[in-house]
Write a protein that binds this DNA or RNA. Structure first.
Lengths: 212, 212
DNA sequence: ACTTTATTGTGATTTAATTCACAACAAGTT
DNA sequence: AACTTGTTGTGAATTAAATCACAATAAAGT
């Protein structure tokens, strides 16, 4: 069981690069093409594939269609992933309007908030009272949610999500969430991202280029 | 020169935890308090500090005020960091309204777009034509920018930023930007973040807990 | 003043991730 | 059919990151 986050992120990047190559009409690809595309070494590509038992043809490289299928399977893209957003603020609005999840099989199903002014039961992506979250999550079998509320209410909102059956949270609130043992938290902290960027800009050069 | 991104991110987290402790009235802190606060080992905390020549008192731990000052210096928080946003869409709007950068000394100075409908020269954070970016960047000595345009225009927009003198980009477009050698790119790819989350939810447990 | 206790600071060790390097081999060439 | 070429697949080596473990030592207690 591979638990190296960077490795999994590379798989996503390979997949994205492969989509492009395919759309350009390519059928086969070599490890060094993929390596160039995402900025790693060819060894790294082959090792990553090897870790997941993905093989190509010696000499012939890899068949793109087959690779995409295998990567899709590993990353759980063989079905549509239903996602909710908790907190219907500006960020939620941006995510709901982002056309880019769809092609990745990610479907934002609904947003939830405590503010009645935000409710929009009949919108394309409905905004519902947070009390309705549990029913919604259970009946739609949602496992993953985005947490986009202010820091002050974040832990409470997360707890509500866990209680509803959510197993993974993409957390935009700038704090460390406490979570049950079988749940996963991925944090996106924009202050920290910018701060990090400033550090690497300051120490000059691109030594700190996105290490992922 | 430390170029371990995770290490730098930890410094930011220590800093955030320290702000809280300070606001709670604490004056001193031990490595294991900080470790608990951000979810790493006490050794890791001390090693990180040691790497940057930060020392405390044997027995007495670290003085919070002094630690904050040193971390601030390392992370470039001893002055306000001026930042621009390129692309005035929903995400830019969310970032411009986010009250959370301010306390970190991050100031969003302006946004730029090609669409005249978006222009708002006199808004609190002005939205200006992209042609004005270079002048703005030069005269305000901006070094860091957020790239929040659709994938299709992202590389061109980035090139404009580099030409204007931007040295670091926080890139939300889902592609690998080509950048000059002395420039840093940090990517935030929400499709990939969600895909990654789905992977770790699927392999169950929280093995993949945010590795940063 | 001496002893105990608690904590740092860091060299040594371990673990994890990446890169190297090359045998295996498929496809094409003579 | 033998030879050449180019690419994979992976064990071995290397590099990087994290953890361990303990001497050094400051503060508190006796």
């Amino acid at each position: 069981m591979i638990t190296n986050r960077n490795c999994i992120i590379r798989l996503s990047r390979y997949k994205n690069a492969l989509y492009r190559l395919r759309d350009l009409g390519f059928v086969k690809v070599f490890s060094d093409n993929l390596a160039d595309a995402i900025g790693v070494t060819a060894s790294q590509v082959r090792k990553d594939f090897s870790l997941f038992g993905i093989t190509g043809n010696r000499k012939g490289g890899y068949e793109i269609a087959s690779l995409l299928e295998k990567l899709g399977g590993i990353l759980g893209k063989d079905r549509v992933e239903r996602v909710i957003i908790v907190g219907a603020g500006h960020l939620a609005y941006a995510l709901m309007h982002y056309r880019g999840f769809e092609k990745e099989g990610i479907k934002i199903e609904a947003a939830f908030d405590i503010d009645p002014l935000k409710f929009a039961k009949n919108a394309q992506i409905p905004v519902l009272p947070i009390e309705e979250m549990k029913d919604f999550v259970v009946s739609n079998n949602v496992k993953v949610g985005v947490l986009a509320v202010p820091e002050i209410g974040a832990q409470r909102a997360a707890d509500t999500m866990f209680a509803a059956g959510i197993k993974g949270i993409l957390n935009f609130a700038p704090l460390r969430l406490k979570a049950p043992n079988d749940c996963t938290i991925n944090n996106v902290n924009l202050e920290i991202e910018l701060e990090n960027l400033v550090y690497f800009v300051n120490i000059l050069g691109k030594k700190g280029e996105d290490k992922i």
